[in-house]
Amino acid sequence: MEPLLRVKNLSKFFPIRKGLFLREVGSVRALDDVSFDLYPGETLGLVGESGCGKSTLGRTLVRLYEPTQGEVEFLGENFLKLKGADLRARRKDIQMIFQDPFASLDPRMTINQILTEPFRVHGLHSRTEQDRLVKEMMEIVGLKASYLDRYPHEFSGGQRQRLSIARSILLKPKLVIADEPVSALDVSIQAQILNLMKDLQKEFNLTYLFISHDLSVVEHLCDRIAVMYLGKIVELASRDELFKNPRHPYTKALMAAIPRVGFGKREMKASLQGEVPSPISPPSGCHFHPRCAVKQSSCSVKYPELIEVAPAHFVACPFHSGGTSL
């Protein structure tokens, strides 16, 4: 199958400027040489801790940030080269859902204005057709059409997230990038939104890039999972393979750190010592080596390539080991 999106060696460095003339004194290497393919109809999960670059990746893909280098091929064309009207037309096919439904809906617009805005931006459909589509979409995401004259503050967090989802799929996009869409929600609401996203994917044949820090949510929703650490993908595999057979020492530590529900009180044992180093001056060689349990002297010299160690299972660690599952 042809990939829908092909990301090659994508990097985004944010310059740090100081002094009177704002000389560039360094950079935050938020996203560092990331490559992957995304196939039509699948859900790819991006997991990692704060500062690993997962949100930067999402934002760079919709060109909210211009990448420092690398290539993004979307529907067979070079997405980074597009400009003006071409870019706008193509953007219709990539939509985004943000984490905080309180910040992502304009408080001074009614729901009707918010939901018809995508049509106005792209000059699509007549007024009556817009109204019909918006009403239909409200029903699809489980909200009453009579809410259309209300303002965002009149809705709960879960309802707002339904509205953001409605807005993002009104244009029938091919790819939806969801950046922590359920992190701000209570657990009982989280389940409703996750189910809604699954239903919509089937109904509209959507491809999801699902960004989250929560491995159990990612396991529930995603077909394939990429684990990120300090701007790089350290492991990429199908869901079953990754959870049955995690190979990168960081993936293993991350899984071990998740509190388990319902097994009763147990002695906690931190799986990783120390903290994530600064992306301004990441450790030499493998970024993970200062915290790694299986490090060798060569780890501080060269960053290991992401290589295929089993069919469709990629790991960036020459000393990876299989076997230890949950």
């Binding site: 009982s188 389940a191 996750l194 949510v217 529930h220 529900v261 949950l326």
Partner: peptide
């Protein structure tokens, strides 16, 4: 009971999460 069922748990796959309808 509903709260415990509605969270995704590592290693326990379900197609749909049972939800609690409505809001607090």
């Amino acid at each position: 009971a509903s709260l415990v069922r509605s969270i995704p748990v590592l290693g326990q796959r379900v197609d749909r999460l049972p939800t609690i309808e409505g809001v607090v």
